[in-house]
Amino acid sequence: GLSDKRHARPAELSGGQKQRAGIARALSTNPSILLCDEATSALDPKTTESILELLQKVNRELGVTIVMITHQMEVIRKICTNVAVIDQGRIVEDGTVREVFGNPQMQITKDFVRTIINDTLPRSLLERLSKYPFPQKILRLRFEGGNADDPVISDTVKKFNVNISILFSTVTELQNTILGYQTVQLTGPADETAKAEAYLSERNVGIQEVTV
């Protein structure tokens, strides 16, 4: 709370304390919607976390809808349920956080999402892969929810005459759902690699081929 600061001047408050005072002032009118414009952009990580926890409490206990305007994707990942991406004053992509962050369509959205879910291979590795002497496919695999911890890769290697090398892997959580990405090198006879890709799709793994 800020009860010990009731006689303090605004200049004597920290950034986080000013934000708390601003939120309290906005809530004094009993709004149904609270607009937060870059509410955490100038705060340190610990203070940002406390402000986000406060906003979640306001939403949960007071039933106030909170609209966040931010360039910080971590803020959206932590507390938002829906997101709209605006470019040049127009909404270019929108949906649940899980839908948009899990499968971004527009380049601006992909650039934003990569700030918290980086799935880009290093340039030096791409150069080495481009000189690989045997037929190969570089695949970006997407695992979501229940299949995120299934042994899909090992099952595929056991089932088909293919080799799968994991080049990159990352995992995050969106709206209480695990979302994982792996970039892999798939090698083997053409008919076997085709069967392996079909099998991965049957196991609800998202597949996108990466050009090297």
Rank of each mutant, 00 (worst) to 15 (best):
G1Q: 10
S3I: 10
D4H: 15
R6L: 10
R9H: 08
L13F: 04
G16P: 12
R20A: 08
G22M: 01
A24Y: 13
A26G: 03
S28I: 07
D37N: 09
A39Q: 07
S41F: 13
S41L: 04
S41K: 12
L43C: 12
L43R: 12
P45M: 06
T48M: 02
I51Q: 01
I51C: 05
L54V: 04
L54K: 03
L55G: 00
Q56G: 14
V58D: 06
R60T: 15
E61A: 02
L62R: 08
G63E: 04
V64N: 03
I66M: 04
V67Y: 10
H71T: 06
H71I: 02
E74P: 00
R77Q: 14
R77M: 11
K78P: 12
I79T: 10
I79V: 11
I79D: 08
A84F: 11
V85L: 05
Q88A: 14
I91S: 10
D94F: 13
G95R: 05
V97C: 08
R98K: 11
E99Q: 15
G102M: 03
G102T: 13
N103P: 00
K110P: 00
D111V: 05
D111P: 00
F112K: 02
F112G: 01
V113Q: 01
R114Q: 09
I116F: 05
I117S: 00
N118A: 05
T120M: 08
T120R: 13
T120W: 06
L121S: 08
R123G: 04
R123Y: 08
S124V: 07
L125E: 05
L126V: 11
E127G: 10
L129D: 07
S130R: 15
Y132T: 05
F134Y: 10
Q136F: 14
Q136K: 15
I138Y: 00
L139K: 01
L139D: 05
R140T: 11
L141Y: 06
R142A: 11
F143Q: 07
N147M: 09
A148H: 01
D150Y: 14
D150S: 14
V152N: 06
I153V: 14
I153D: 12
T156L: 01
K158Y: 12
I166C: 09
L167V: 05
L167E: 15
S169D: 14
S169I: 09
T170H: 02
T170S: 09
V171N: 02
V171L: 07
V171A: 07
N176Y: 08
T177I: 13
L179M: 11
V184M: 10
L186M: 03
L186T: 05
L186S: 01
G188V: 04
E192M: 08
T193H: 02
A198H: 08
Y199F: 15
R203K: 10
V205Q: 00
E209K: 14
T211Y: 07
V212G: 06
